[in-house]
């Protein structure tokens, strides 16, 4: 990596505590440009937390994250984010186009309203995810797969260089899944970098260039062929690190200041 082009994402010794309970320990990784990276691990492994920590939404208790060589705040516009579907209220009175336009808000800044150019971008993004016919539909009348596509279109509208996707394949139909995979590879072909939280091991190998095996700490990280081995997956999924989670528990108790014992 030449010093002129800092990597899209660099994480150094990142430890994150949620509600004062550590959920991620000492993550260290560098994501090179133009890769499609899968984050894989069991439930409660801290996959979503890692994404949130990258976005500065879960403050780290130690370590740092750099986006293209700068702290997230200074480079927020280069990051697109696709949250889990359940994270929003789908009864909210907006239609599909409004949601996609929200992706443009970060570029607009205060007091400006989305203009014609923004609408054009939103239209193009909707077309990419094959949701243009639904542009005027209220979001509560969408299927799970369609909701996911809307979120993807919104992230596309952000026109970022690094995309973070939290379980984009959760509960979507087969057509949507392949459509999303398609878009992800198109984005990679354009030189974008993508990190995707994924929970399906059977497809993980097929979809991603690189894998990050996560279970409270980084079990392994590297090209899919090297990482996707029985031993390493066993190490990721095989039982929780009892001592680590015990200590996490006692740590959170201590910090919550509960007297230990009855």
């Amino acid at each position: 990596m030449s010093p002129q082009t800092p990597p899209p994402l660099e994480i150094h010794d990142l430890t994150v505590a949620y509600h004062k309970k550590p959920v991620l320990y000492g993550i260290d990784l560098v994501v090179p440009s133009g890769r499609l990276v899968g984050i894989v691990g069991p439930n409660g492994a801290g996959k979503s937390t890692l994404i949130k920590a990258i976005l500065g939404l879960a403050p780290p208790s130690s370590g740092w994250v750099k986006i293209f060589g700068k702290p997230y705040r200074n480079n927020a516009k280069r990051v697109g984010y696709v949250p889990q579907r359940e994270s929003v209220d789908w009864d909210f009175p907006v239609n599909v186009r409004d949601v996609v336009l929200m992706g443009r808000y970060g570029r607009l800044g205060w007091l400006k309203r989305p203009g014609k150019a923004d609408r054009e971008v939103a239209r193009a993004c909707l077309e990419k995810v094959q949701m243009l016919p639904y542009a005027n539909r209220q979001i509560s009348n969408l299927s799970g797969g369609q909701q996911q596509r809307v979120f993807l279109a919104r992230a596309l509208a952000q026109e970022s260089d690094l995309y973070l996707l939290d379980e984009p394949f959760a509960g979507v139909d087969v057509a949507t899944e392949s459509a999303i995979v398609n878009i992800l590879s198109q984005l990679r072909a354009q030189g974008k970098t993508l990190m995707v939280v994924h929970h399906d091991l059977t497809t993980a190998r097929k979809y991603f260039d690189m894998l990050l095996l996560l279970n409270m700490r980084m079990v392994d990280y590297g090209p899919t062929d090297e990482v996707f081995t029985y031993e390493k997956l066993q190490a990721t999924y095989g039982g929780r690190l009892t001592i680590l989670s015990q200590v996490a528990d006692s740590l959170s108790q201590e910090k919550e200041n509960l007297p230990v014992g009855p």
């Binding site: 010794d13 430890t15 000492g26 260290d28 130690s62 690190l241 015990q246 200590v247 740590l251």
Partner: peptide
């Protein structure tokens, strides 16, 4: 941390600085 959690040896110190005060006797035995 280095043996079981595969930390790099140069990353473990800060973590241990905090944990050392909290480990109970039973966890130490384990």
């Amino acid at each position: 941390l280095t043996e079981s959690v595969r930390y790099q040896p140069d990353h473990v110190h800060d973590d241990a600085e905090e944990i050392e005060h909290l480990l109970g006797e039973d966890i130490v035995r384990q």
